[in-house]
């Protein structure tokens, strides 16, 4: 089937099998490989992308279901090539990662959290990222990264990347 997907603000026409997941479409068809497969049954959150600003598991969404929505992947988070969003920069500053495999999903989840809640408590951060597994870090430095990003966003009077992603019209 032929679809038009809005990915990171650009309209993309794709030809995929009906059964193709959004994850496979992003990775294999559009070659946006920053979105990664973890369990492929909706548990680990590795493949998280934002659909109209909300985190979803792209392994559980068919590509066809994303038509008409704004899809944000990790490639759409930085303000410009070679730059980092405030959240991405905070993940680097706090070393909120090790192998990097869960990181795109974690960053997008954090972007979505901070778009709706500029001053989350530690418990709210833990709750927000609890659907994203990480096997390297034990989450401590990830929580610290989100806390740091929240402080920096507030003090810089800057909106998180997810807030820039308006739903597709």
């Amino acid at each position: 089937m032929e679809l038009t997907l809005t990915v990171n603000g650009r309209a993309r026409r794709v030809q995929v099998e009906d059964r193709c997941t959004l994850l496979d479409c992003l990775r294999e068809t559009l070659r946006l490989t920053g979105t990664r497969a973890g369990c492929e049954h909706g548990v680990c959150g590795t493949c998280t992308v934002l659909l109209d600003g909300e985190p979803v598991r792209s392994c559980l969404v068919l590509a066809a279901q994303a038509e008409g929505s704004a899809v944000t992947t990790i490639e759409g988070v930085a303000p410009a090539p070679g730059e980092l969003s405030v959240v991405q920069d905070a993940f680097c500053e706090a070393h909120g990662m090790q192998c990097g495999y869960c990181t795109p999903g974690m960053v997008l989840t954090a972007e979505a959290l901070l778009a709706g809640n500029p001053a989350p408590t530690r418990e709210e951060i833990v709750e927000a990222i609890s659907g994203n597994l990480c096997r390297c870090t034990g989450y401590g430095q990830i929580v610290e990264a989100v806390e740091l990003a929240a402080v920096r966003l507030r003090s810089a009077n800057t909106r998180p990347a997810a807030a820039r992603m308006e739903p597709a019209k």
Binding site: Q88, F91, C99, V107
Partner: peptide
């Protein structure tokens, strides 16, 4: 800062599944 982190935070890590 851990130099590897930058490419991971941007999704630019290059894993086995990315080899095409």
């Amino acid at each position: 800062r851990v130099r590897e982190d930058r490419r991971f935070a941007t999704g630019d890590g290059h894993y086995a599944a990315d080899v095409a």
